[in-house]
Amino acid sequence: MNLFRLAGDVSHLLAIIILLLKIWRTRSCAGISGKSQILFALVFTTRYLDLLTTFISFYNTTMKVIYIGCSYATVWMIYAKFKATYDSNHDTFRMEFLVIPIAALSLLVNHDFAPLEILWTFSIYLESVAILPQLFMVSKTGEAETITSHYLFALGLYRALYLMNWIWRFFAEGFFDLIAIVAGLVQTILYCDFFYLYITKVLKGKKLSLPA
């Protein structure tokens, strides 16, 4: 465990908790894409099936359980508890356009043609694009609440920190995982435009709104 990895995990956890608290405290999920949250729940579920087969560490198990639990709690708040505040008219991204091609890709490009390995690969690929419905929603409405921007920033930062962790691990341990790296790069690149807006606008105290 190096500092980049730890900071990445903390950033990821922070993102998840920011979103949960935002919805819980405002009693509203306005501006949040339920579809991105369903995709993240699917990502965690398919990746962490190894909870049932392999014990890695107390840290690893705890974080996985927290990620899965929070992600299902978020989906539950959007589609049940605070359903009335869910902005479904603006959440129109078609999930099948991501899930089906990614399922096919994970069957074709993986480390090992075994069920758990294919599901792990699927989750890595899906995670890289799972934020698209949310970014699509922000671009459709032309703005995001400041707290939603903080969520997106923490979530983007997490994978950027993981990229540095992988560079570290390459030099420290002498190997790399091409599937994780390529997907992680794609994921981080998707956030770049948002990072720019976040730094130039949100950090200067302005609300994130896109030019018309």
Partner: peptide, 10 residues
Amino acid sequence: SMVVMWKDEL
């Protein structure tokens, strides 16, 4: 194996 090692990540 190498493949398994990176499964320590989240």
